[in-house]
Design a protein around this nucleic acid. Sequence first.
DNA 1: CTTCTTGCAAAATTTTTGCATTACA
DNA 2: TGTAATGCAAAAATTTTGCAAGAAG
Lengths: 162, 162
Amino acid sequence: MDDLSQGQGFMLSETARLKERFKEYLASEGLKYTRQRKVIADVFFKEGEGHRSLNELLATAQVEYASMGYATVYRTMKLMTDSGVALEHKFADTGLTLYEPNLEGDHHDHIICLTCGRIVEFEDEGIEERQEVVAKTYGFKVRKHRHEIYADCIKPVCEFRH
Amino acid sequence: MDDLSQGQGFMLSETARLKERFKEYLASEGLKYTRQRKVIADVFFKEGEGHRSLNELLATAQVEYASMGYATVYRTMKLMTDSGVALEHKFADTGLTLYEPNLEGDHHDHIICLTCGRIVEFEDEGIEERQEVVAKTYGFKVRKHRHEIYADCIKPVCEFRH
DNA sequence: CTTCTTGCAAAATTTTTGCATTACA
DNA sequence: TGTAATGCAAAAATTTTGCAAGAAG
């Protein structure tokens, strides 16, 4: 009984909270929570899924809603990004934009495995702090940043090689 | 008399050295140092120029070589990147690839001004070190990285606003 | 001379938009 | 019932490639 949110007497998962925030955002903008948007949100906020492209999201969404179009997923993910519940990443190797749920209090950066493409998240308070100092030194205020480490697995053979 | 390179009795600037290395790379691969490649190298390694797109490089190159084609600049910059004398950057805001001379011993990352688009270079040993530690912790060896800080000028009005 | 390079134009990728139709609220 | 959303297809924006003609070594 450690996370009774909204005083409603039941627990909302992190991702369920993001889905709620998305619905509230739509309402506040006079936009509609359509069947398609619900399916896309369900797919996107299904836990345990990491960084996915529009085509991956589309394919999964079409399982539940066969006529789903690419443009709908595209525009919905843009709305999610605008509302702050999703983050866009353009990694250097793929050339594709990947989307990730913007979990609260979970800021992190990424290590991209050059062997298998796997994406590992990391967080380092020391780097964050120095970054603020560096920006200030040059007369800037940090708004956002992108820090990606492209790396090889240390093990003799990458255990995730595909 | 502090930098007599190649034992030739005259000084080569940093960028002239990169141009030499590019010529050596071409020779070692059995490729040719054509008039076009020379013009592009001259333009690209002209000092004091920072991060430029293919179209900017093309426009400048055409001043000296009117019939220069985009594809030639594209392929030449790829050769420069492969040979290590140029670095490619795809910043998050532009969607364009920018090229920069890979000056020796001058590793740095970038602060991108969200107000005027200006790109400022920074280097921070502390961040570099922590990055190595972080990667090792997760079982990786750093090959390259990308660290970009998107920021606003602290002054009331950005002095570089355009 | 032979191989590599050029410049054009076309292909490939990925993102973005226009518009007639459909569906929310 | 009016405004917003959808899905298609076409447009944009950028990168990449094929190929015939021309240049380099």
